[in-house]
Design a protein around this nucleic acid. Structure first.
Lengths: 108, 108
DNA sequence: GGTCGGTACCTAGACTCCCGAGGTACTAGG
DNA sequence: CCTAGTACCTCGGGAGTCTAGGTACCGACC
């Protein structure tokens, strides 16, 4: 389980949970989707995303299923579990407080 | 030099630079000031802050000076260098893009 | 046929760095 | 004395990001 309260950590987990909350996706798709939706800011390597997805699965926050695709490699689709949804909700609140605090220090 | 563009990294460095941009401070004071200004969100241990300050100094982003105080331990005051101010300015822009991207994924 | 690029997954290792736990030293108060 | 406060520091663990690779299959191009 991600450790809220640490500094600037686990933002990626939270972003992944949020994206997968909106729509079930597989890793490779997720990378492209995050790049698109973030306007290029989140340009993540696969070596970042795949381990993160497996951690979230290991921690019971995502469930995964393999899907065979004709004419291409099989895909591993991820979606949040109930626990994942809870962590997401908490994480959203946490993020808002963190962002507000950072804004307060950085100035607008 | 902090590496902008990485995910959830070096946020602390940026916050420290910003706080010290507003006013020269020493480490112990900085911890209290960040806690105050962030409404308790940034409750950092000294084991977090002192090494971060030394890293920033090592990288030429902060300059430090010792100040003797009557009736108490001496203090090490920090202020951003010119390079530090540049990194701060870049970091502010970077933070805004990062926060906007995160908000875009998390939803409001 | 061979090569290239795209899709889709994965691991290993380096590196950063946050944080908890401890340690030093001096002051002031009970 | 002993505790609490000020003020600095280091060490080690552990988590997590990223670069750099590797596997495998497909289709297209020359």
């Amino acid at each position: 389980m991600p450790d809220p309260g640490r500094f600037g950590r686990n933002d990626l987990s939270l972003v992944l949970l949020a994206a997968l909350h909106d729509r079930e996706m597989y890793g490779y798709e997720l990378v492209a989707e995050l790049r698109r939706r973030s306007d290029g800011v989140f340009d993540l390597g696969e070596g970042t995303v795949y381990p993160a997805l497996r951690r979230l699965e290991r921690d019971g926050l995502l469930r995964a299923r393999w899907v065979d695709v004709a004419g291409g490699p099989r895909r591993r689709y991820y979606a949040p579990t109930q626990a994942g949804e809870r962590v997401l909700a908490d994480g959203r609140a946490e993020w808002r407080r963190f962002a507000a605090a950072t804004d307060a220090i950085l100035g607008s």
